[in-house]
Write a protein that binds this DNA or RNA. Structure first.
Lengths: 239, 239
DNA sequence: TTAAACAGTTTTATCATATAAATAATACAT
DNA sequence: ATGTATTATTTATATGATAAAACTGTTTAA
């Protein structure tokens, strides 16, 4: 296997190169994915390593591999967007606004409902963590903390306070994309002064046991991010 | 490997038995998961088959496997609930109302937003499919179609009409659990006469380009399902 | 002429075995 | 008592061999 390592084992390295190549569109009908045997040779790894990588990518919905048919790339609709690797490969190789838009639409749905549930549940320990993240955001406004990390911490802490396992787990992939999303929004609109204030409204709704307010404030925040993305998309189409 | 097959290959069969056993709570600190070598012997399969199964379960967040440490079960918070297998194993082995409740909370978030988007997008072909599913539900009320399947088709067609890849993919795991959910709701409340009417309200919102109405009707429907579950949960606690 | 049956070939699936690397537990030396 | 070297266990990787699947083309029968 070629040079780089990054603490991944061989199988993971193979999956990484193959997976990102597939999503990057390297392969197609004219240039099909080579057979396992050829892959071993090309990447200079054993069949075990290649095989396990292929299996892993099949589990992610990227490919199928059947005897006598070889490895086939599945249509994009099969790609598992809730897999952190797939999502990362997509955002790195094909940083389309369309994906960011769809992801933000998901966030509108999830985060608003999570805020509502957090307000209902009233888990004081977890709400305190939201407060801590919010305070970090305030500090960030005067340069005393990282605006990106504190922002992410805030959103994740709300998901956690929802005490819903599905929402909590979505936090993991939201984390992946939030970094791009926040960076993008800040790039477009500039780091506004009102960021902390907007987020505080959500927190207030939660801590004051006002589920609907919390949800509304969250939805508002997300919708404005969505508006920024849509605006950028329209500009793009004008070209 | 023991008798049954079900069209799965060996690796998948091993993953199936091991995965469901783990989630069923067969293993614990007193009874740890055996090493790969022992697994091969117990299940009468080769090392390759066992290894690939272990890798697959690791990818699902159920276990880790490190040299000299063996296979360890990860805390439940790591289990990937967005993996169809994991979700199925959980619902089959531990059919807890709590999970159903959390899942329905996810559906409240997702389906309402999807209905809203579907109304905005106005993809006539996809909206027509919602209409078809709705018609099937009407037929089902007089016993001319399957109430469960038509209900599922309706909800999935809305996700599809949202034209959001994340929502569409959630359809797959929603499908898995919807079957339990609908069955449960119908068992509790009886198959009400108004099912078709309630769903039609959502459809009307979509077809008439009324995003907020569609979302509200969807949320209402979901919330009532949630209420049924919460009621059952309270009864359970009273015991 | 058409379709069904068959054989041949390619490719993955599974098995078996061997060696390397990682690491937990133990023994040892300081 | 503390840090270090050794040992044993377990996964990681490699290799080679056989089995099963399924596409392709050909032959055969209706």
């Amino acid at each position: 296997m070629s040079g780089i390592n990054r603490g991944l084992n061989l199988t993971q390295q193979v999956a990484e190169t193959l997976g990102s190549a597939i999503i990057r569109g390297t392969y197609g009908t004219d240039n099909p994915v080579p057979s396992e045997a050829v892959l071993c040779e090309q990447l200079q790894v054993s069949r075990s390593a290649a095989r396990e990588a292929v299996k892993s990518l099949a589990a992610k919905g990227l490919i199928t591999s059947r005897a006598r048919q070889g490895i086939r790339i599945l249509p994009e609709t099969e790609w598992n967007l809730f897999d952190a690797d797939v999502l990362r490969w997509m955002r790195d190789s094909n940083p389309s606004l369309a994906l960011l838009k769809e992801f933000t639409e998901l966030r509108v749905a999830i985060e608003a409902e999570a805020a509502k549930l957090a307000a209902e549940r009233q888990n004081t320990a977890k709400i305190e963590k939201i407060a801590v993240a919010l305070e970090r955001m305030r500090q960030a406004e005067s340069g005393l903390d990282d605006p990106l990390e504190s922002d992410i911490a805030f959103h994740l802490s709300i998901l956690d306070a929802s005490e819903n396992r599905f929402f909590m787990q979505l936090g993991r992939i939201i984390d992946t994309t939030l970094r791009v999303s926040i960076r993008f929004t800040n790039m477009r609109t500039g780091v506004r002064a009102g960021v902390h204030a907007d987020h505080k409204k959500i927190y207030d709704g939660i801590v004051n046991n006002k589920p609907d307010e919390a949800a509304a404030m969250s939805a508002e925040l997300m919708e404005s991010a969505l508006a920024t993305i849509n605006q950028a998309l329209e500009e793009q189409e004008t070209l």
